[in-house]
Design a protein around this nucleic acid. Structure first.
Lengths: 137, 137
DNA sequence: ATTAATTACTACTTTAAGGTAGTATTAATC
DNA sequence: GATTAATACTACCTTAAAGTAGTAATTAAT
């Protein structure tokens, strides 16, 4: 019952970038060092964030990454969606596939309330909300 | 953000057994067929449930499995604990390791409410509560 | 132009979860 | 006692996530 490492890394990376919004570009070396994320894995994830248009990259010397839009306009759920880690409507606690109108899992009713809260948390929390909060690692 | 297949299978297996409490013993072949769980994987999981004392097994011809105690005394969380899938106190949304007093993750506060509801759901839902609910597969 | 510092791409390795196969053990039935 | 039908055990295979390595492409500074 946890987010994938990849999603967690991505959220922390973007939150750090949101926090340092003064510096126009942040490079992978700095991010990897501060956030204690394996450098090569970080760049791999970052490339996906670039492709998903959450981040813009500048190659070459003095290059780096920056958010593609205002931190308040990037929600945690946007990040989870990239890595297929968001909570889908039909997704239930049991049911390796999904619950649906025809076939609800045994914990369907109990799941409703926590599910809604989780979705709310992911959908309403923006990078601005979480930037600078908590420790970096 | 989902339970492991193993935990989901285990919960469904035990819920089905709770539902058929009249029949003293239920065998793996029936369970695998009804619940659509791979037979060999099911027996592997069941052996762990036996070792964890949630299930008693009877070997040999006419053998099978039965719950070791009343369905109302087996909580979903007991099952999750066996497969290290329960939500730990220090476990947070981010923080590949764990959040703690010293180092809270950026989503720590937002996570509190859904986390408590999830823990409540797992700790308070017994096999009796979920037996017969929902469809089997 | 050359160099240095950066991201992007391709391919591989490692690890853990999920799943399978075959054999040994057990116990009721015949 | 032999057979049959069940669980238990050991070892393996498969798949996907996590992580690594090396090279190509790009761009600012020199």
């Amino acid at each position: 019952m946890q987010l994938s490492n990849t999603s967690q890394y991505a959220i922390r990376m973007l939150a750090y970038m949101a926090d340092k919004k003064d510096s126009p570009l942040i490079n992978a070396t700095e991010l990897a060092k501060v956030l204690q994320i394996p450098y090569k894995f970080l760049t791999k994830i970052m490339t996906e964030l670039v492709k998903a248009d959450l981040v813009v990259s500048m190659r070459g010397r003095e290059g780096g990454y920056s958010l593609s839009k205002k931190a308040s306009d990037i929600k945690v759920d946007d990040i989870l969606n990239i890595f297929h880690d968001s909570i889908q409507e039909e997704q239930c606690v049991l049911g390796i596939g999904f619950c649906n109108g025809m076939c609800k899992c045994a914990l369907h009713d109990q799941w409703m309330e926590p599910k809604l809260l989780l979705q709310k948390m992911f959908r309403e929390s923006s990078l601005e909300d979480i930037a600078g909060k908590g420790c970096k690692i």
